[in-house]
Design a protein around this nucleic acid. Structure first.
Ligand SMILES: Nc1ccn([C@H]2C[C@H](O)[C@@H](COP(=O)(O)OP(=O)(O)OP(=O)(O)O)O2)c(=O)n1
Ligand SMILES: [Mg+2]
Ligand SMILES: [Mg+2]
Length: 595
DNA sequence: ATCCTCCCCTAC
DNA sequence: TAAGGTAGGGGAGGAT
């Protein structure tokens, strides 16, 4: 059973109550979750709050203390914290509990029952009533990017940030292993005939985040389950499902779907929380295991890798047995096809290409005309079993930090302060990989006029703008990056009188496209004014100019209002020594020009 | 031709 | 009570 404590309770500090619950075999939800919380514990609820939670099982802390003291689970309704509210008759409205029980007063199976004091640890006697705990006043959650704590909190909770940064860490971690495998491969090539077949296996963990969550919730393996942040219990909260298991997929639930939509498809869906630390250790285990099977290893993501098995294969019939050996539950029918993005898939469907086999029916020029030269050629090859994709690692070319959530600035200094935080982040990452950048790009997303105003903290429909600049010298200094971002790529416009709400003003505004995600085949871009070569970075130009730009014919020299997103990206990163040596190798006249 | 800048798209 | 990041491939169109 899983309890959530609402507000503070009169009997004892919340932390102590929580510790008691955990100690005696209960689970604890920091946030109430419709799908995992079985009971709520509350001392004093305001009438509106009572109304809000009237469909849930809400008991007083005394219920927990008495149950522990008596060594058995007492019926919660004797301790209901909702006595002022008439009991509802429609119990079917109750969300599933961890045990699937929907009737009130259900007693969980013994294995999960709250009172199970181990003989060695006598139950703590019920705490005597005390005065209310001193107001714990934890710092309120940072609401949006105006809050200086926002960035850190956001990163702690963003799964996409986790995926991306963990992938970069993985690649760094794998480099020595990769080098070693490469060395062995060269040795083999020198001493033995090349393998008759090139066999690359694609290893991908099933519903990764959910599978990790199952380790602590084995009771749910047969249920439809997703991993997502807790939703607001009341009404309209919804969060994105990072991963869902195959039971849930049978209902149509998908990774990346929002919980409100998912629940319409599958009302019994259970949602479990993230556990980023566990993903890390599990991924490390995965890669350690794969290294022992493979003669080549290409890390793709936290749950996925290519392994080169060519030397182990002398005949095609060896392939499946080997795959079975590597993964006992290997299921050929689940072998994922190459997935296509929305836009490409639509264009292909227009050519009557739905499966890979259909690709043989389309000529290469036709594919190239529809999809671009490169992708057309690549897909033409795929249709014929040709994949020239290389299996190597390239050094990283860019480092970037980007936030498109919680961006709600009212004034320019807020926006600039946030830019300073982002550039500081980029500088730190450069330092951590021992690199400097020779180029920087700033990207801004501006909320489109037709964006949905009810949007919570997401970015919604936006126009995007970007501007980049080459540095005279490569740098990894946070201050330098911040200066460039705030004064060279973007600067406070002259027309700040606009309610004091001018936020960013592109030195050279460009016309943006319609939206970030979604069907992006509107008009192409254009309207680029002259790009004259920028001066070397420090010192910044003293007199920035305002340039009129146009989007759909309207003057658009500044961006105003509740804006959206920011990215600070540095390009052409290089080892520190290299940056200097390249510079020193330049002919003196060019060098003087740069410095 | 090739490079550069700004933009789009994809994957996890 | 949510947490739409991040890196890379690549194209259009102008500059060189
Ligand atoms: N839109 C997405 C897609 C994936 N992920 C995370 C959660 C996934 O568990 C993990 C791995 O992604 P996969 O594409 O491999 O998806 P799963 O492993 O969840 O499912 P499958 O069994 O189809 O591989 O990345 C995410 O947060 N958001
Ligand atoms: Mg997977
Ligand atoms: Mg995967």
């Amino acid at each position: 059973m899983t309890l959530h404590i609402n507000g503070h309770c009169d009997e004892m500090p919340m932390q102590e109550l929580k510790a008691l619950i955990l100690k005696h075999g209960g689970q604890y939800d920091h946030y109430f979750s419709k799908s995992t919380t079985t009971h709520m514990v509350a001392s004093n609820l305001t009438p509106p709050k009572k109304h809000e939670v009237r469909h849930f099982k809400v008991a007083t802390p005394r219920w927990v203390l008495d149950s522990i003291a008596q060594g058995k689970l007492l019926p919660w309704h004797r301790y209901s914290a909702l006595t002022m509210v008439p009991l509802v008759s429609d119990q079917t409205l109750l969300v599933p509990t961890v045990h699937g029980a929907t009737s009130s007063g259900s007693i969980p199976p013994p294995g999960h029952a709250l009172p199970q004091p181990p003989p060695s640890t006598p139950a703590r006697p019920p705490a005597p009533a005390r005065p209310p705990a001193p107001a714990p006043t934890p710092r309120p959650a940072a609401k949006d990017a105006k809050d200086p704590e926002f960035l850190q909190q956001y990163y702690q909770h963003s799964r996409l940030h986790f995926l991306s940064t963990w992938k970069a860490e993985l690649q760094a971690m794998m480099r020595p292993i990769h080098d070693e495998l490469q060395r062995k491969a060269q040795e083999r090539a020198a001493n033995a005939p090349p393998p008759p077949f090139k066999v690359i296996m694609h290893v991908d963990m099933d519903c990764y985040f959910v599978s990790v969550a199952f380790r602590s919730r084995p009771d749910l393996v047969d249920k439809p389950v997703g991993v997502a942040h807790a939703e607001k219990m009341n009404a309209d909260g919804s969060s994105e499902i990072a991963s869902c298991n195959y039971v849930a997929r049978r209902f149509g639930v998908r990774n990346g779907m929002f919980t409100d939509q998912a629940r319409k498809l599958c009302s019994q869906l259970f949602l479990l929380p993230y556990d980023f630390a566990a993903y890390r250790t599990t991924t490390a285990q995965l890669y350690a295991a794969l290294r022992d099977f493979a003669t080549g290893l290409h890390d793709l993501s936290c749950d996925e890798a290519y392994i080169d098995e060519s030397p182990h294969i002398t005949d095609p019939s060896d392939i499946l047995p080997l795959a079975h050996a590597i993964r006992p539950k290997f299921a050929p029918e689940r072998d994922a096809p190459r997935r296509l993005g929305h836009h490409v898939a639509r264009k292909l469907a227009g050519m009557k290409v739905v499966t890979a086999a259909d690709l043989v029916n389309v000529s290469e020029p036709k594919l190239q005309a529809e999809l671009g030269a490169k992708l057309g050629e690549t897909l033409y090859g795929y249709g014929r079993g040709i994949d020239e994709g290389d299996f190597g690692h390239k050094p990283r070319q860019t480092v970037s930090a980007e936030v498109n959530y919680g961006i709600r600035f009212d004034a320019q200094d807020q926006a600039h302060e946030f830019m300073r935080q982002l550039t500081r982040e980029v500088a730190q990452r450069l330092h951590s990989v021992g690199a400097k950048a020779a180029h920087m790009t700033l990207k801004i997303m501006k909320r489109a006029t037709d964006a949905d105003p009810r949007m919570h903290l997401g970015h919604g429909i936006c126009d995007t703008f970007s501007k980049s600049q080459t540095f005279a010298r490569a740098t990894n200094q946070a201050d330098a990056l911040a200066t460039v971002a705030c004064t060279r790529l973007v600067y406070p416009g002259d027309k700040v009188e606009k309610d004091g709400r001018t936020l960013f003003d592109f030195v050279r505004p460009t016309k943006g496209k319609k939206e970030k995600k979604g069907n992006g085949d509107e008009v192409g871009c254009g309207d680029r004014t002259v790009g004259r070569r920028e001066e070397p970075v420090p010192p910044p130009r003293s007199a920035p100019r305002v340039v009129e730009g146009a989007r759909n014919g309207a003057p658009a020299a500044w961006i105003e209002g509740a804006t959206s997103s920011t990215i600070a990206q540095v390009d052409k990163i290089m080892a520190q020594e290299l940056a200097l040596s390249v510079l020193n190798d330049l002919p003196p006249d060019i060098r003087r020009e740069l410095i």
